[in-house]
Simulated assay, not measured.
Amino acid sequence: MWVDLLRALALVCVIEGLMPFIAPERWRETVLRLAEVAPRQLRIFGAVMIAVGVVALQFLHYV
């Protein structure tokens, strides 16, 4: 189980690192824009992403 968790976290690192590697200036602009977003909007976005991830994991589990 722990190995699967570590693999998942490693994959997150790879995916998160793609944008700064491919388009660093665009990534910087996006991060600066995100810094201006209200905390409530960020929480809602985070909650939606969590829900999408959970649904995707459940779907993949049964496929």
Rank of each mutant, 00 (worst) to 15 (best):
M1W: 04
W2H: 06
V3D: 04
L5P: 05
L5C: 11
L5D: 04
L5N: 07
L6V: 14
L6T: 02
L6D: 03
R7A: 10
A8N: 02
A8M: 11
L9I: 05
L9D: 04
L9A: 09
A10V: 12
A10D: 12
L11C: 15
C13S: 08
V14K: 05
V14I: 15
V14T: 09
I15R: 04
I15G: 08
E16L: 02
E16A: 12
E16S: 01
E16P: 00
E16M: 01
G17K: 09
G17R: 04
M19P: 03
M19I: 01
P20I: 15
P20W: 12
P20G: 06
F21E: 01
I22R: 06
A23S: 06
P24A: 05
P24H: 10
R26E: 01
W27Y: 11
W27D: 03
R28H: 08
R28D: 10
R28N: 06
R28Y: 06
E29L: 14
E29N: 13
E29I: 05
T30Y: 05
T30K: 11
V31P: 03
L32I: 00
L32N: 01
R33A: 08
L34D: 04
A35P: 00
E36K: 15
V37G: 01
V37T: 02
A38F: 10
A38K: 10
P39A: 11
Q41S: 05
Q41W: 01
R43M: 08
R43I: 07
I44M: 07
I44D: 02
I44W: 12
F45L: 09
A47G: 01
A47P: 00
A47R: 03
A47N: 02
A47L: 08
V48A: 14
V48Y: 05
V48C: 12
V48N: 07
M49F: 15
M49Q: 13
A51H: 04
G53P: 13
V54H: 03
V54Y: 01
V55R: 13
A56C: 00
A56H: 01
L57N: 11
Q58M: 15
Q58E: 07
F59K: 07
F59Q: 09
H61P: 00
